[in-house]
Design a protein around this nucleic acid. Structure first.
Length: 846
RNA sequence: GCGAGAGUGGCGGAACUGGCAGACGCGCUAGACUUAGGAUCUAGUGGGCUAAUCACCUGUAGGGGUUCAAAUCCCCUCUCUCGCACCA
């Protein structure tokens, strides 16, 4: 046995990497096809070499892209790097290595690893968001939004992370903590840049209709919750003494409970609080409670468990529907950020108000009754719909109707109106950090805020800066950067020193991929129209309310600007599951990491790719197992042995000039002429069943794990055939055909070993150019079927019968079965259920 | 607390519209080859009963139901995962 008969993954993989690169087989694009398919995996943040989650994500996308391309589609399958971001800058503070250097070094590592794993990307088309040729267009897009009035600088209470020394978008705060470093986030009032994503809240909801068939429902639910639409009314309250005309609007989803308002609450931070409190005693108490409340973190205030506290302010407002005097309180459970920061409290019909009223002895007045009767003292809030009681002219109405009528009443009297409220906040995009795209704006004393003209883009990020975190952008201390001329009047002006949230960069990269090298604009409209939307997007679900919602917003804004033709960026989205080790999330700090490189260096990339798909369903959490890797490697060794054995056999036994193109039709002829033996027919049928199963599993169901098991079954059956039948009696055409098709089916998952064996078979050209096989339904159909016989639903016998045997015949055979007879003798047969090709169930009376 | 999804051998997981539960892989057991085996091959492998690979019983978190037939459909309970959670 020569050395060429041993499976040596390192040697063959390195060999093919080189050849493929020379022959550029990875360019899946061609403009000659009519049907396009855009496969995209979320691009990586270049943190070093890729981790197992990356390997999983990219392998899934790669296999899909390969199969689709070989079904004749024109496939766009690009890669790039989300290269701006905090980790590189934090590393720079620690180590002194410039973010640009570390980022580029990491990208090199990443690219090398992706290539080594045989990902079908055209690396010449990759994009790097931190490159001026890219962020020039990020800045340009910022300006488009600015012109549309969708970008604005405004004073607002924002989330501040002390550890990251920057503000965070709402989406980056996960239950009161920083998404990146887990520190507790605190509120600060700062002037910051925002994108008005709230203007698109309704469309982000409505357009879910366009993508609902391709997105998992749970992801849309997460977005729906995040947007948080609620319908109700705005109701204006005024102070009772006419001392001023200040209107305090509130938002309520239950205008039908307006008659049950017994107190009124302002958020402790509400700007009116300080000015309205007049009495000395109240001033003291309000100051004390306010201090207590503001000391509570957002996490505490956001939790329903924390005790409700508050106090009376000494002032009253008038309930506009019945002119009653309502005491004004402050309380910790009313949040400034939501609605108007003021609430009409209806303790009888709101659990929070009920708790508060009970604690402080405030009146609880029932106005909605489940049965239309009044109930005196309530033991808990009734929050359901019912019949209005104690509600003046509205008494007796159903709450649903009452809502509409009260809104109508408010609108007529101009003291309120129908309103929709959203939890979604505007997207805060400025960051007080260095390693990001500069916001292309200057401030001029004469002209105010001035957009940098397109011709002056990009606003280059200076290289030499001091990274010390001071709470302000490092750019602020870079005078050459800050001091500039006003583009409008030419006078002295100062540049904006904040940079953009990296999520801005990633909100449009899928468009840049359509024309990655274009210098004259962000993207070529025609190309974007050809490729967009992304047909299949693949990536982690943790971006449900960040990247995925921002990208949807961007696409809509660009659509409104007339820059793109689609409203949604991603037709289908598939969230893959994470890879754990010992049930724990892999993390550097815990030291429980298996890197893809360890695996491909030891077993080869084919083993890695195979195992990461075989490990479990692609959308579920899977636990890494080194034993499992070995199993996958063993399988490839078995394939190697089977195919090399068959190559030897074919050399000695096959008719000369046999090619895989005619082996198929030759075999079909032999099959129809009855020239195949029993076991040969079985192998032949299994082959076509496998083609069917693998195609469906990959393309329709994303079931890579079962696609691989079915290939394993085929290999097992082919090996068994070789074992059972002596070489001289084997059917050469069958051996040839099944070996060829086996390699083709396996090639997207294990591109190296299949290419090597393909060439060992004497083929010309790459296996990765061979069209995806079609199955023949006639051959895939089983001739014989196992029919089970049951008595009272219990399995008692089974028999092989020709497929399609009639129900009558089945019944006859079943009743003739010795085993069945044993069970039914002496009993009365009640009925017999027959399902052709499946079973006969004889029901007897016992 | 509310909502959604899930629970199948020792393990990862199959079972498409109700119709042979446990495909495929790991692990384990026995055997073959071998100086050796953590290589490779063969056979076996849900549990119980059994001399047996015959036969039988039992079995998909637990309990009930629908059905000729339930891992699959319905109800209740338990457990886990995810989402939401003073959102007025």
């Amino acid at each position: 046995m020569g050395s060429s008969d041993i499976y040596e993954p390192q040697i063959i993989e390195n060999k093919w990497l080189k050849i493929w690169q020379e022959e550029k087989i990875y360019s899946l694009k061609s403009d000659n096809y009519s049907s396009k398919y855009y496969v995209l995996e979320m691009f990586p943040y270049p943190s070093g070499e890729p981790h197992m989650g990356h390997a999983r994500n990219y392998t899934i996308g790669d296999v899909l892209a390969r199969v689709i391309a070989r079904r004749g589609y024109d496939v766009l399958h690009p890669i790039g790097y989300d290269a701006f971001g905090l980790p590189a800058e934090n590393a720079a503070i620690k180590s002194g290595i410039h973010p640009k250097e570390s980022t580029m070094a990491n990208i090199d590592k990443m690219r090398k690893a992706l290539k080594r794993m045989a990902m079908t990307y055209d690396f010449e088309d990759e994009i790097i968001t931190s490159d001026p040729s890219y962020y020039k267009w990020t800045q340009w897009l910022f300006l488009q939004l600015y012109r549309m009035g969708l970008a604005e600088k405004k004073e607002a209470g924002v989330n501040w992370c002390d550890s990251c020394q920057t503000v965070l978008a709402n989406e980056q705060v996960i239950s009161g903590r920083c998404e990146r470093c887990d520190s507790i986030v605190r509120k600060r009032v700062l002037s910051q840049w925002f994108f008005r994503i709230t203007d698109y809240a309704q469309r982000l909801l409505d357009d879910m209709e366009l993508i609902k068939d391709g997105w998992p429902e749970r992801v849309l639910t997460i977005q729906r919750n995040w947007i948080g639409r609620s319908e109700g009314a705005r109701v204006d309250f005024r102070f009772d003494d006419g001392s001023d005309n200040t209107i305090i609007p509130v938002f309520t989803t239950r205008p039908d409970t307006l008659y049950g308002v017994t107190f009124f609450i302002l958020a402790a931070e509400h700007p009116l609080v300080d000015s309205i409190v007049t009495g000395e005693k109240e001033k003291k108490e309000v100051a004390r409670i306010k201090a207590l409340i503001t000391a509570q973190t957002d996490i505490e205030r956001g939790s329903a468990e924390i005790e409700k506290i508050g106090c009376f302010t000494g002032r009253y407002v008038i309930n506009p529907v019945n002119d009653q005097r309502i005491p004004v309180w402050i309380a910790n459970y009313v949040l400034l950020e939501y609605g108007t920061g003021a609430v009409m409290a209806v303790p009888a019909h709101d659990t929070r108000d009920f708790d508060f009223a009970s604690k402080y002895g405030i009146e609880i007045r029932e106005v909605i009754s489940p049965d239309g009767k009044t109930h005196g003292t309530l033991s808990e809030a009734f929050t359901g719909e019912g019949i209005m009681v104690n509600s003046g002219p509205f008494t007796g109405k159903k709450s649903d109707d009452g809502k509409k009528e009260i809104i109508k009443f408010l609108e007529e009297k101009k003291i309120g109106n129908f309103e929709i409220n959203y939890k979604l906040k505007d997207w805060l995009i400025s960051r007080q950090r260095y390693w990001g795209a500069p916001i292309p704006v200057v401030f001029c004393e004469k002209c105010g805020t001035v957009a940098v003209p397109e011709s002056q883009l990009p606003v280059l990020l200076p290289y030499d800066v001091d990274f010390k975190p001071t709470g302000f952008s490092p750019l602020l201390y870079k005078e050459e950067f800050v001091n500039t001329r006003c583009p409008s009047c030419g006078g002295a002006a100062k540049r904006e020193t904040d940079t953009m949230d990296t999520f801005v960069c990633s909100s449009w990269y899928f468009l840049r991929y359509c024309s990655p090298h274009l210098e004259s604009s962000a993207f070529d409209r025609e190309k974007a129209d050809k490729w967009m939307p992304v047909d299949q997007y693949i990536g982690g679900i943790e971006h449900a309310t960040m990247h995925l919602i921002y990208s949807r917003f961007f696409m809509k804004a660009l659509y409104d600007a007339g820059l793109v033709s689609n409203k949604e960026p991603f037709t289908k989205y598939y969230p893959h599951g994470v890879v754990t080790l010992g049930g724990q999330k892999m993390s550097k700090s815990k030291g429980n990491i298996v890197n893809p490189s360890e695996i491909y260096n030891k077993y080869g990339a084919d083993t890695l790719r195979l195992y990461i798909l075989f490990i479990g369903p692609a959308d579920s959490i899977v636990d890494w197992s080194n034993k499992g890797v070995e199993g996958s490697h063993r399988f490839l060794k078995r394939v190697w042995k089977l195919v090399t054995d068959n190559i030897d056999f074919i050399k000695n036994h096959a008719p000369s000039g046999l090619s895989h193109i005619d082996s198929g039709s030759m075999l079909k002829n032999m099959y129809s002429q009855g020239k195949l033996g029993l076991q040969e027919k079985e192998v032949y049928k299994k082959l076509h069943q496998t083609i069917k199963k693998v195609s469906g599993d990959i393309l329709d169901r994303f079931n890579f794990n079962t696609a691989i098991s079915s290939i394993m079954e085929l290999v097992n059956m082919m090996s068994k055939y070789n074992e059972d039948i002596k070489a001289e009696r084997r059917q050469a055409v069958l051996v040839y055909e099944s070996t060829v098709k086996l390699l083709v089916l396996l090639s997207p998952v294990a591109p190296f070993i299949t290419e090597e064996l393909w060439h060992k078979m004497g083929a010309n050209g790459s296996i990765h150019r061979v069209p995806w096989p079609e199955y023949d339904a006639e051959i895939a159909r089983e001739e014989m079927t196992t029919v089970i016989f049951q008595v009272n639903g219990k399995l008692r016998d089974k028999i092989e019968l020709e497929s399609g045997t009639s129900a009558d015949e089945l019944e006859k055979v079943a009743l003739a079965s010795e085993k069945i007879k044993k069970y039914i003798e002496g009993f009365q047969i009640v009925k017999i259920i027959t399902v052709p090709d499946k079973l006969v169930n004889i029901v007897i009376k016992q």
